[in-house]
């Protein structure tokens, strides 16, 4: 059976406008060759720092803009080149929950109309009674009182608004929901509520989630597999336990070690990366991480490592995982990975 969502060699480059005189046109390489798949009822998380391209991948999956290269398949069918008319049905299957629950709800629409819009738009119910039943059901699913339907978005707290955002995504009866930093703006106690809600809904409805987040602890809590992105590329992709227990890319290790753990007794060694993420306009030659990698050697500066399996289902793009590398270097990453726990 083919996976629900397949992304192959996805690229998205943004032009920086008309060049000055003889210079060649410059491009931001926001996403530069990304491939992954998501199965039905599975959560895949995209993690990385700001500017790594994780949101751009999410938007490409939603087809909010044309992509530069590559293909996106939903249920085996290519959706990146669909005509506007055929796109409609695809749009029903893929929905989104945004980060900011304040700006992503129309302040001039009652909750009832916000939720009814996708249902009517896709012609999912025939009668008024059917619509009402469906709205009541949605409120129940996301844990809001039924009388909330007649209120305005500003009457709700941040967590409740995020519940409305989730209800709106569910209204179209989707197969995949893209959660773009959907819990990042919420307070601790509310975040836990929404994380639990998303997990319950996934179990109940068999939804697939593309969970985009910079928060590794939340990701670890709710994902099945994780893809780590750096400067527009996936550097490591693995099942949750594999990635957190045995990371095979130095960037993943550094990222994990940088997260502060709420336990004053935790004694961890920390790998502090020097400097900042380079510009995606002129990404470094060779491995994109070579400017900050503590294990960099000559080959990293000239040859770009491919994302390839290091174990069953575990992909990493790092020369250290290749055979010719000296034993001591390899031990370095593994020892480092062990020390952070």
């Amino acid at each position: 059976m083919s996976p629900l969502l397949e992304v192959n060699g996805l690229k998205k480059h943004y032009s920086l406008g008309r060049p000055l005189f003889g210079h060649s046109r410059e491009y931001v390489h926001a996403v530069d060759g990304v491939s992954f798949h998501i199965d039905k009822a599975e959560t895949l998380s995209l993690v990385g720092e700001s500017g790594c391209g994780k949101s751009t991948v999410g938007r490409a999956v939603l087809r909010l803009f044309p992509i530069t290269a590559g293909e996106v398949r939903l249920g085996g069918e290519r959706i990146d080149n669909l005509s506007a008319g055929r796109l409609r049905n695809m749009r029903r299957k893929v929905q989104v929950v945004f980060q900011d629950p304040v700006s992503s709800l129309n302040p001039r629409m009652r909750v009832r109309n916000i939720l009814a819009e996708p249902i009517k738009n896709f012609g999912l119910v025939r009668s008024r009674a059917g619509l009402n039943a469906r709205l009541d059901d949605l409120m129940k699913k996301v844990g809001l009182p039924a009388d909330a339907l007649n209120r305005w978005p500003h009457e709700f707290s941040g967590g409740q608004r995020q519940r409305i955002g989730i209800a709106r995504a569910l209204a179209a009866d989707p197969e995949l929901i893209v959660c773009d930093e959907a819990v990042s703006a919420l307070d601790v106690s509310v975040k836990a509520q929404i994380v639990n809600l998303l997990q319950d809904l996934q179990r109940e409805l068999g939804l697939a989630l593309l969970f985009i987040s910079h928060d590794l602890a939340v990701v670890e809590h709710m994902t099945h597999r994780v893809a780590v992105m750096y400067l527009g590329k996936i550097v490591e992709l693995a099942p949750r336990h594999e990635l957190f227990a045995r990371p095979r890319h130095p960037y993943t290790v550094a990222l994990l070690s940088a997260v502060p753990i709420p336990d004053p007794k935790a004694k961890r060694s920390r790998i502090i990366l020097k400097g900042d993420v380079p510009s995606p306009i002129n990404p470094p030659k060779g491995c994109r991480f070579n400017t900050r990698c503590p294990f960099v050697f000559d080959r990293c500066r000239s040859e770009e490592p491919e994302l390839r399996p290091v174990e069953e289902g575990h992909l990493a793009a790092c020369h250290l995982n290749d055979q010719p590398v000296s034993e001591s270097q390899l031990r370095g990453v593994e020892a480092m990975a062990r020390r952070i726990w």
Binding site: S157, G159, Q160, V188, S189, V190, K191, A192, Q193, V195, N196, Q199, D215, L216, A217, V218, E220, H221, M222, R240, H241, F244, A245, L256, V259, I261, P262, D263, W341
Partner: peptide, 25 residues
Amino acid sequence: LLGAIPRLGSSLRGATARLSEIPGM
């Protein structure tokens, strides 16, 4: 508050329990 934060490394200890919620607001 302490129960509501997801902790890094929790999957390694086999702890996949639900996060505890503080109800209401």
